[in-house]
């Protein structure tokens, strides 16, 4: 087993990575909140289960933001309160085009994927066990939301909004729903935001 430490990351690197992760969380939470006010996300044409997912995500991301902010200041950095500058404009451009529950799910799915991939990368690179544990906990929460969104997205894309209910009619669900939520044996990291992106 390689006896070296797990990375050459410094406290300054930690702060940059934590601030970038926080910026993605800020953007994701803001996007979820905005979508709650959209007709297709929280209004007349919303799917009730999707509405519940949005509400739960807002709470979870709020907790994540608090934890990441505490970690940032604990590492000697300034709290990040701004949304991610790379994906913020993407969201701004996409929001006016959201018309359907599928649009809602598709937009937050993109954000959750980038957030989770960023935190998974951080979980292997941050300099202390406590920071790595935090990144992996928050990243796993994001991955779990991604899995659920993938299932919902699959059903909505197939025109089966009637199956997006809790509890589901297991006998009616397509078999493929059983695996569509975990497409990768190892969680990918290619889309991880570079640490300086939101610093």
């Amino acid at each position: 087993m390689n006896p070296r430490g797990i990375g050459a990351q410094t406290a300054g690197d930690d702060v940059a990575a934590l601030r970038t992760a926080t910026a993605l969380v800020v953007l994701a939470q803001s996007t979820y909140r905005t979508l709650q006010t959209n007709t297709a996300g929280g209004g007349a044409t919303a799917v009730p289960l999707v509405r519940d997912l949005l509400a739960a995500a807002v709470v979870e991301l709020g907790d994540a933001r608090s934890a990441l902010t505490a970690a940032t200041t604990g590492a000697g950095g300034r709290a990040q309160t701004a949304p991610d500058p790379a994906y913020g404009p993407v969201v701004d451009a996409a929001l006016p085009t959201v018309r359907t529950p599928a649009d809602v799910v598709g937009l937050v799915l993109t954000l959750e994927d980038v957030l989770a991939q960023t935190l998974v990368t951080d979980a292997a690179g941050l300099s202390t066990p406590a920071l790595r544990a935090l990144a992996l906990r928050v990243g796993s929460e994001s991955a779990a939301r991604k899995a659920t969104l993938l299932m919902v997205n699959s059903l909505l894309s197939a025109g089966r909004a009637d199956l997006v209910v809790a509890p589901p009619d297991l006998a009616s669900l397509p078999g493929g729903i059983g695996t569509v939520g975990f497409p990768d044996t190892r969680f990918p990291t290619a889309k991880a935001a570079p640490p300086e992106e939101g610093n």
């Binding site: 991955a143 589901p168 190892r186 969680f187």
Partner: peptide, 27 residues
């Protein structure tokens, strides 16, 4: 973990378990 390979593997596998768990919960 202090080993980079072990840390990297763990970081990419734990979220997959979370996705399995989310799938079971959804069902």
């Amino acid at each position: 973990f202090t080993d980079p390979g072990a840390a990297a593997l763990a970081a990419t596998l734990a979220p997959v378990s979370a996705m399995h768990g989310a799938t079971a919960a959804f069902l």
